[in-house]
Design a binder for these strands. Structure first.
Lengths: 229, 229
DNA sequence: CTGTTAGCGCGTTCAT
DNA sequence: ATGAACGCGCTAACAG
């Protein structure tokens, strides 16, 4: 009969360990100025009581929210879903992101963003204000969407862009850029076919909207040119 | 130059509208006892200031967290992902859940649960304590996992189970059960083939671990029996 | 109908 | 090295 002693707060831990709330807080956040013995004693109470800090409360007192927003193109995601031909957006990257986040105590929250409407500012802004995430991850084609970047910046939300363009596009936003070597990959693939003796090699590129697609085409073209010379 | 007037709180709205915090709160939550004109005035301020309530704060004051936890089998999800043969768990149901949640102002958070370890209680418990979700959605094979149901119940988290068994399994948990007519579907498919003149019809069932699979086999068997009689 | 008071759980000054 | 006091943004009792 698990007694319904839910909501084990920092208070209970403090009482159980016979210390003040602050000390518990310090232990939780791995802060200095706590005697090893104290730390241990508190940790013991935490474990025994099965205490877990409430992210809501943590967020309230200026700390992190431990939430990361994963922004995806709404229209495309839904269309793929309906067509059952899903490009596996999750399997491709988001699940990996989830796992990595989990490793560090973070949660990934998926948000479908609709750039075609003028609601963008309002919708994305609302999501940021409501969730107050510690960061965001952009996937194509949003990675290069200046307005999204602007909104994120305005809300002081750091972001990482997957398959994003460089800074050539009007020295604007910072943020981390993550990308595989698209051009190199395409070159490699093309080279491989050429080495096998093929000469007439086509290339199916993705939608022009995706910069990635362009880079790959570049790689293919380059290798084809090199081969015919 | 958007002045960095981030963090528009309920206070700003109250001041702007010239009312008390409470009134603003009432408008936000669509509570009664607010004169239409007041409501309008407050709403106007909300819109103009672009105010959006912080879910963290809302959760803090006993209200909802507007978060729904979607529980999936960790091992299977990761395995599928690695094998690139993803069963499209997201495209199948979770994306649909996301959209529906979004419609009502809720967010869906995916959580991979590992039932093989004895950490279950601790891990799931931690997630519940940290996030304090308003509800949870279980997918097979977790839908029938008694321990998970127990933990959810203990944390007072309502849940919906997809493809779950009935109450035959030891009159336990409440919670909503959602399922398609698996047996009926299998019957229908089998019937169709029979009508086409086929007689030797096989059936590839899913893992025995999934009750769903059993139901489908039942449907197939039933129809085959009916046909041969 | 509306405003006032009191916390929610936690981090963050300050004292000690 | 530790504790007390305050505030975060919001809602839930109670006044009025």
């Amino acid at each position: 009969m698990a007694r319904r002693r839910l909501a084990v707060t920092i208070k209970h831990v403090a009482a159980d360990a016979g210390v003040s709330l602050q000390t518990v807080s310090r232990v939780i956040n791995n802060e200095p100025n706590v005697r090893p013995e104290m730390r241990e004693r508190v940790q013991a109470s935490i474990d025994r009581l099965g205490y877990v800090p409430s992210i809501a409360a943590q967020r309230m007192s200026g700390s992190k929210s431990y939430l990361i927003l994963a922004l995806n193109d709404r229209e495309r995601t839904i269309a793929d879903w309906r067509a059952r031909q899903g490009t596996d957006w999750v399997d491709q990257m988001l699940l990996g992101g989830m796992l990595e986040c989990a490793e560090h105590g973070y949660r990934l929250i998926f948000e479908l963003v609709d750039t075609h409407e003028d609601h963008l500012e309002r919708e994305l802004g609302a999501a940021l204000a409501a969730l107050q995430p510690d960061g965001a991850i952009l996937t194509p084609p949003h990675s290069d969407n200046q307005e999204i970047l602007r909104i994120l910046t305005r809300h002081h939300v750091p972001y990482a862009r997957i398959g994003a363009l460089g800074d050539e596009d009007g020295g604007s936003p910072a943020g981390v850029r993550v990308s595989m070597d698209d051009e190199g990959g395409a070159r490699l693939a093309t080279r491989h076919l050429i080495d096998l003796g093929h000469r007439r090699i086509g290339f199916i590129s993705g939608p022009a909207e995706y910069r990635l697609a362009g880079w790959r085409v570049d790689g293919w073209r380059a290798e084809m040119a090199a081969a015919s010379s």
